[in-house]
Every structure is written in C-alpha cells, then in structure tokens.
Amino acid sequence: MQAFVEKLQALDRRWIYLLLSLVLIVSLIVGKQVDPVVIPPVEQLYKIVDDTPTGPGEGKIIVLCTTFSASTLGENGNHAIALMRHCFLKKKRFAITAVGEAQGALLGRAIATQLAEQYGAEYGVDWIDFDFQLNTLAFYTSFPKDIPGTVRVDGVQGKPLTSYPIMQGIDTINDVALLIDITASNSVFSWLQYVQPNTKPRLKIGYACTGVMVAEAYPFLDSGQLVGMLPGLKGASDYEKLVDVIEEQELAAGNIPQRYEPIRVGGMQLNTARQLMFTQDKAHILIIAFIALGNIGLFIALRLRRRAGKERS
C-alpha cells in the first residue's frame, strides 16, 4: 500500500498529459453535441440582441468587437459565430471591428464573410467591417462622437463608410444599440471606462470572454454595466443552442436556404461549440478524478507517516 501511495505521489506528470490527450482525442472523434442548460447571463444577452432596434429601417446597428487572436478561436471564434448567426437569422444589422488586435480583424472578417454567404446576407446592407482600430485613448474618445470620421474606410472594399446603405443615419455612439466585445483580453474595461459613462442613455455593452476573465466580469454584470455575458466555451455552447432553435424555425418557414455548416478560418475548421463542450465535459471529469486521486494519496501518505512516527516513538 505504502509503495503504491508513494508511486502515486511521485507520478511523472507526462502520464497525466498522455491520459488527458487520450481522453480528448477519443471524445473529439466520438464528437457528440451536448444539450446544455442555458445560464442566465447568456439568456440575458440573447434577449437583448433579439430586442435591439437594429433591423432594416430601424436606424441602429450592433457593434461586434472581434478583439481576439487565433489562439482563442476555440472560445472566442465560437462566440463570434453564434452571435453573427443570430444577427443574420433575425436580420439584425451589425458592424465588426477589432480594437488593438490585428488578427481579430482578419478572423472576424473571415467568419462574417462565410456566414453571410450561407445566410444570403449582403455586405454594406446587412453588415459592415470597421476593420482594425488602434487600442488608444484617442480612439475611445473620437469613435463615440464621430463613427464615420474615426473609422473612415471599411475593411473589405476600402470605401468611405458613408457610401454604404447600412451606415445611413449612423453617426455617433447613440446610433449603436448594443456593443458586444468578443475578446480574450480585458479590452471591455476600456469601453466601460471611457465610453459608457459618457453616453445617455447608457450604452448597452455585452461581453463574450474567455473562461479566464469570467470571475472578474461578474461584478460588472451585477451592477448593470454589462447587460449580458457569454462566459467561455460554456457561454458559446449555450448561445449556440438558442440560435439553433431560431435556425430550425427559419428553415421551416423557408426564410433561409440551408442549415449552418461549420466554417473554415485560415485552413482550420471550427467545429460547433456544443461538440467541443462534449469533449470539455469529459476532460473535466478526468481532472476531477485526478484531483480526488491526488488528495486521497496525500491523506493516506500523511496517515502512514504519522503511524510510522508513532511506532518509532
């Protein structure tokens, strides 16, 4: 027993990596979709996107900040896909921009272009690309006052923003019904600090963040500074479930030509968040088992050592 416990305590960490890899590979190959219970912050954001007056002729737009890089595609990529699918399905007009993250501009554009093709949306009418913007104080002060003047040209065709139908009547931050920051960084705090306090009524800000940022963001949700949140992969899979329901309805009504097909970004296929969540569940079970095993081993070792000490004395 003692020998086994000692071996367990001194287990080479590479065995743990190997076991975890095996679990991930097997569950990815099996690849089932989970049916998650939607958590309140996700439902809140979904309702707000649904209720925004951003349809054709309603005069406002949603701004989606795709401020993430390829390293967090698993989480943020799926957030962006779910949110854009919702906008395309419900004819909510939106703009994408990446503040301070060059890769985000390319990734956001790649995702939006492919989804627009699938849902038959038109560039410049249903959505527009505000391209990469510098993450500076100057941007956060000038963008709210003059959107076409700050962004100047779009990221797809390089034409002045005012030449697009979607931008007619969109001048200041008051014409933005909702801003959602899809990010792996704390860039949302710049919007909360520099932009939101100067808007009346208060600019609605949503947050689609990686799991690391979740705990830090909850107080802002509680205070109403954030109107909703997609926390990590769980948030993406919950939102995806809600969007899948609309998609089925739209498909049955004949409003869309096809169901969503997983897209490719830079040669990489992005599987659905609900599929990835299945794998995440299995990995969590394994990690919990490791924690339990490690703690049991530690307690047994302590007890054996104490017993050995008593016998010696």
């Binding site: 890899s21 990815l28 595609l73 989480e75 690391v212 705990a215 794998t279």
Partner: peptide, 27 residues
C-alpha cells in the same frame, strides 16, 4: 473560495484552447 473559482475558470479556459487545437489536428 473566490480565488478557487478564478483558478477553476482558468483551467476551464486553458482546456478549451487545448481542445480547439486537438480538434484542428484531428480534423
């Protein structure tokens, strides 16, 4: 307790990233 929550969500986030990389390789 709250630091444990932060650590837990960090592990969750790192796992998501690892899963996405594995997914790309397997695909």
């Amino acid at each position: 307790l709250s630091l444990g929550t932060i650590f837990g969500t960090t592990v969750m986030a790192r796992l998501s990233l690892l899963i996405a990389r594995f997914d790309i390789v397997i695909d």
